[in-house]
Amino acid sequence: MTSSRTPDAAALARRVLQLIDLTSLNDGDDEAAIGTLVGSANTPLGRPAALCIYARLIGAARGALAAQGFSLPIATVTNFPSGAPLPDAAARETAEAVALGADEVDVVLPYRALIEGDALIARELVAQCRAAAGRRCLKVILETGELRETHLIRQASEIAIEGGADFIKTSTGKVAVNATLEAAEVMLDTIRQAGRPVGFKAAGGIRTVDDAAAYLALAQRICGEGWATPATFRFGASGLLGNLLASAGHVDGDRPSPSY
């Protein structure tokens, strides 16, 4: 069932959907929850950029995708959500995620160590995880709501980019302050100056089309019109999906809980 909506609203919703890493990172996630997540990804507007789930459920996601007759890249998280200052452990976890079939890995930077002035441990962790991920897409989560200060957000962005990150990502979605436009502006400006292609991912608390549109407008202003594609820009979200469908005039069905 649909209702009358403007073509512009539907087009925006479709564009945003194609940029989503549809996410479920709840402690109680199981095969049934992942099956529901996979089913929700096949929408009247199209499909998201990827699924983002815990590594232990990658096999279940592959099975559910095969059963439902379509495929999507699968992302997972490592050193999550703690951002522990343990490069060897983070690299092992990243390698294990790749062995389990992850196409993309989102690893948490040791942000507390960086706040305390230890940039070397952050550099080492990114470098080791880059090597462990191999050719897989590596996104580095900065946890900007905890870094807070502009100079720390920029420093974390630079460390991640210099270490070989394919994307830099705002947040785990597990702290009090997650994605903000202020942090995104610093990150996008650092990407603009990077001298090589690097993507941006906004995660945590992005729940409406209007929220998403504000980030897209910011990316366009800083990085140029047409820059934001699935290869360069992602939203980490679950609750956003229902709002996208509603904004395009589609009845919202059984969607993942808005916990990210």
Rank of each mutant, 00 (worst) to 15 (best):
P85A: 15
G59N: 12
K201E: 02
P256N: 06
M1W: 09
G145D: 06
A102L: 06
G199W: 00
P85F: 06
P73R: 10
V105C: 00
N243D: 15
T94R: 09
H151Q: 10
I191C: 02
I191S: 05
I159K: 06
D27W: 13
I159V: 11
P44T: 13
R136A: 14
R207Q: 13
T229E: 08
L45V: 02
T43Y: 12
N79H: 01
E149K: 15
G101D: 09
A64F: 02
I222P: 04
Q68I: 00
V177K: 04
R5M: 14
L19Y: 01
V251C: 11
S247Q: 14
V126L: 07
I121E: 02
G35I: 05
R234V: 05
L147S: 02
A212H: 02
E104C: 12
L57Q: 13
F80L: 05
P7H: 04
I141F: 10
Q18C: 11
I222A: 05
S257K: 12
A231R: 14
G253S: 08
F235S: 00
L240C: 07
I159G: 01
R255L: 15
L22P: 01
A219G: 14
E96A: 14
I20E: 05
L188D: 04
L65S: 01
S24N: 11
T150D: 14
L12K: 10
A95Y: 06
D88Y: 08
D118T: 06
T172E: 00
Q128D: 12
A75Y: 00
T43G: 10
C129Y: 03
